[in-house]
């Protein structure tokens, strides 16, 4: 880069400051002994204690984790199948509609997804009696639906970039399609499935809007509880919660990123 690297790098620095300063400020204030944001009232960990004693938040966190694990697992199974259908099954009837249904959930505004799924659940209930009530079950279905699209895209791009000669050789030697997929393709796409699962898990844990629409009375997920608290302004317990969440996630991402880098480096010799 010959021209004006100063400009480029100052934009880069500004961009990262923009992305990270709010997070650091929030983390800092989670240790502030004063309820006011302006005043530094000294160091304290009392908001963390208050957080751990807050049963409403703990219950919601548990519910959210349960929904996230179930929906991420379902989404990984369905999304992997969808990726295989898009990339290893050749032409089939309705392929265009299918690819549309995989791409659209990625950008669909959450209010539309949430509203339409709720109206579906209500209509189904009137017609068939199922789902009898709305709560963890309906939120899990909703999260599975939009997360499987993300998994499908991750798996699909892995399948597209993969060398197919091994699969083709196995097929030419008389391998049955199921066995070839199970024994050869699957082990190669396990990393993509794992990142898909993590992505689905994170998206589910984070979703407010779709859960608000599709959940029922008494089943509040963690984002729903957080939203009801922060609508009224700054809440120190939420600062503490945010700090914990961000610390855990950052650690996970950094370790995963580090491992990928190390693997890349050793692969390149």
């Amino acid at each position: 880069m010959k021209r004006s690297p100063t400009f480029l790098y100052s934009m880069l620095a500004f961009g990262f400051a923009f992305l990270y300063i709010p997070i650091f400020v929030m983390m800092l204030y989670s240790f502030n002994d004063s309820r006011l944001v302006t005043v530094w009232g000294g160091f304290t960990t009392r908001w963390y204690t208050a957080l751990l004693e807050n049963e409403q938040i703990l219950e919601a966190a548990l519910l959210s984790l349960e929904i996230a694990v179930t929906s991420a697992t379902l989404a990984t199974v369905l999304g992997t199948l969808a990726g295989l259908a898009m990339n290893r099954m050749g032409q089939f009837r309705g392929r265009t509609v299918f690819s549309g249904m995989i791409a659209a959930p990625l950008v669909m505004p959450e209010v539309i997804t949430g509203l339409s799924l709720l109206l579906l659940f209500i209509s189904l209930q009137e017609l068939t009696g199922w789902p009898a009530s709305r709560g963890a079950n309906t939120v899990t279905i909703a999260h599975t639906t939009f997360a499987m699209a993300y998994v499908a895209v991750v798996v699909q791009s892995r399948l597209a970039s993969m060398d197919q000669s091994l699969e083709e050789a196995a097929m030419d030697l008389g391998g049955r399609p199921f066995n070839v997929t199970w024994d050869i393709t699957l082990p190669l796409i396990i990393p993509a499935m794992a990142s898909g699962w993590l992505l689905a898990f994170t998206l589910s844990l984070d979703d407010l809007v779709i859960a608000s629409f599709t959940s029922g009375a008494g089943a509040s997920t963690l984002p729903m509880v957080i939203f009801s608290k922060v609508k009224l302004g700054v809440t120190p317990e939420v600062n503490a919660l945010a700090t914990l969440v961000i610390a855990i996630v950052s650690l996970g991402v950094l370790i995963a990123g580090w491992n990928i880098l190390k693997k890349q480096r050793s692969a390149h010799g």
Partner: peptide, 13 residues
């Protein structure tokens, strides 16, 4: 990867 809701909330502060 970190919570979208919590990062929006950070701007309230």
């Amino acid at each position: 990867w970190t919570s979208f809701l919590l990062r929006v909330y950070a701007w309230i502060i």
